[in-house]
Design a protein around this nucleic acid. Structure first.
Lengths: 204, 204
DNA sequence: CCTATGCTCAAACGATCGTTTGATACGCAT
DNA sequence: ATGCGTATCAAACGATCGTTTGAGCATAGG
């Protein structure tokens, strides 16, 4: 795709999102990436400095918006909000992102990769920049699970977020039932995810 | 570690398991791998033919045993066995593998990687060789979930297996409570995983 | 003793990787 | 027109990748 009305930086970020999701960070070469984007090989280092910085920017571009929406949704909840409401505030923005096209689905798959890879540099980048979001959700969930001790809560949260990330990554692949609109389908999937996660967190 | 009472093939497989879990298939080089194993660089291609074949052998060595144990446990169940019993037959062998040392924990982490990477070649290898195991468990679970239609069951199973794989991969990281034996800890974790998964599958 | 076989070794192969270079083109203020 | 910062380009850099080679070693069978 040689010409486009998007800037070179945006073309690179879009192509990176797609290729990283498909081949992983190590498996995706800058030559394949710039070829997909229709830009020169050197432009990655010119605009981003290095491949690692490009990876960080791929995350930053989406997570600034995604986690902002999550916190907004969390702030909108009252003290009477249920466990399910909190989970929905966390899940819904991600599902909408994966639904809205232009690489959103690919990005959610990248998130799942990052979750399982345990790469030290990437984890500390995410923790430094977005760790407060997870902490705020953990606190909100803890309020709604008073009988659970802290240690138990933490490793259940780990499983739940892992399961949710995996599920959201595969959300795009799930074929929806015939005669159901995309909006209805997302609502349906979210209901299931929320119930699933709530059941896992509440189990005695 | 130059000398060892293990054969070169076993040394390579052990080192591969550890390094693949830490750096991924692309990120782990044969030079680092053979250096860790204390063997010559060329021995990988001599004994396994290629890096890809080595990867397959890493899976085969563990999955032949693991999935055999899973099927044995499934066969031992009666028709009256509950949903939880079926899930336990699937989970317990994997948790015991990750507990028993000598790379078992690393292998479970590799499994989680394979699950999220969606690599075409690896997926078809696993599907060709071990697809029947998942099919048998899916059938056993479907019997215990008569109200769930097939399509709904399939994507819930996808989430549950993804969540379980992720959880089992992180099982080794979870610190156990003081004053609890390792055996008790595993039983405790398994109870939680089974309850978690059963709740997710049963949710209306 | 000799040879055949299985294995290990250092060294090199060509390919591909991320990154850097220097030339060139473009837009815009002076 | 001229100078200057910004962006793009083909080309090359050195490093590292998976893989192959061919000589060398050990040991078991005749």
């Amino acid at each position: 795709m040689p010409p486009s009305h998007f800037s070179t930086k945006e073309r690179i970020l879009d192509a990176a999102e797609e290729l990283f999701a498909r081949r992983g960070f190590d498996g995706a070469s800058l030559r394949q990436l710039t070829s997909d984007a229709g830009v020169n090989l050197a432009s990655v280092n010119y605009h981003f400095g290095s491949k690692d910085k490009l990876i960080e920017e791929v995350f930053r571009r989406r997570l600034d918006i995604l986690n902002g929406q999550r916190l907004d949704a969390l702030d909108r909840l009252t003290r009477q909000a249920t466990l399910e409401d909190v989970l929905m505030a966390f899940i819904q923005p991600a599902l909408e992102l994966s639904r809205e096209g232009r690489g959103g689905g690919a990005f959610v798959r990248i998130l799942a990769r990052a979750y399982v890879e345990h790469d030290e540099q990437l984890r500390s980048f995410l923790s430094d920049n977005y760790g407060d979001v997870l902490k705020r959700f953990a606190a909100a969930l803890a309020e709604r699970l008073p009988t659970l001790d802290k240690q138990e809560l933490y490793w259940r949260l780990d499983i739940v977020t892992g399961a949710l990330t995996y599920a959201m990554a595969n959300f795009g692949i799930i074929r929806r039932q015939a005669g159901i609109s995309e909006e209805q389908h997302m609502q349906q999937v979210m209901q299931h995810l929320v119930h699933f996660a709530a059941a896992g967190l509440r189990t005695a």
